[in-house]
């Protein structure tokens, strides 16, 4: 009896679990579908939001050539590639690759770190806004826990990248110093050396 009960309980929980998995898979699929459907709009607004922190975003928005417009180009590419991943199981490494250039740019633009990475979080709000406006999919808004989690993972990956970029910048500085060119400004000044100097070899 007990065994039976136990069995049936296990069975029930297994079924429940299956249902839950199916549910979550379906939701995941729904969300992916929603992102596919609104991809353009979301990326558009996301990029616009991120670019609004520059003084002349208009140019960055319009110019489509990545060579004539590296900032706008890099952002658009990064967000466009990042978005579909946010509906899947997040892989941190993948995020890193996608966000690399975006973060590299933000890391040298005189922004404080929070400013630099804030645009990544913006997609949470943008997505909610867009879903809410979409009658068919408005229900999805209530269940964006996984999506938010993926955004958080992406932001954490970006944080690592940001630090890596800053460290590389300082390493570059050091390399410049080591390469000997500091002699340009740290060498004895001419007026000083006009006075007789000892033989320095």
């Amino acid at each position: 009896m007990i065994v039976l009960l136990d069995f049936s309980l296990t069975e029930i929980s297994r079924v429940a679990w299956r249902i839950a998995v199916a549910e979550s898979l379906r939701e995941q699929a729904d969300l992916a579908e929603a992102l596919r459907c609104h991809r353009q709009k979301i990326v558009e607004r996301w990029v616009k939001y991120a670019l609004s922190s520059y003084q002349s975003p208009d140019f960055f928005l319009r110019e489509g050539d990545p060579f004539a417009n590296p900032i706008g180009g890099a952002m658009r590419q990064a967000f466009d590639r990042l978005l579909p991943l946010l509906a899947q199981k997040p892989e941190r490494l993948e995020f890193s690759e996608i966000l690399r250039q975006f973060v590299q740019i933000r890391a040298v633009q005189g922004l404080v770190p929070s400013q630099a990475l804030a645009p990544i979080y913006a997609v949470k709000h943008i997505l909610r806004d867009i879903l809410a406006a979409d009658k068919e999919r408005a229900a999805l808004v209530a269940n964006l826990y996984d999506f938010d989690f993926a955004v958080d993972i992406a932001a954490l990956a970006a944080f690592d990248m940001y630090m890596e970029s800053r460290e590389r910048l300082y390493a570059t500085r050091l390399a410049e110093l080591k390469s000997g060119r500091h002699i340009l400004t740290d060498g004895g000044c001419p007026s000083k050396t006009l006075h007789p100097v000892g033989d320095d070899g």
Partner: peptide
């Protein structure tokens, strides 16, 4: 003139 090699999702090309 500028060659536009990359075109992201729907850009207003000017």
């Amino acid at each position: 003139t500028q060659a536009r090699i990359y075109s992201g999702p729907k850009l207003t090309h000017e």
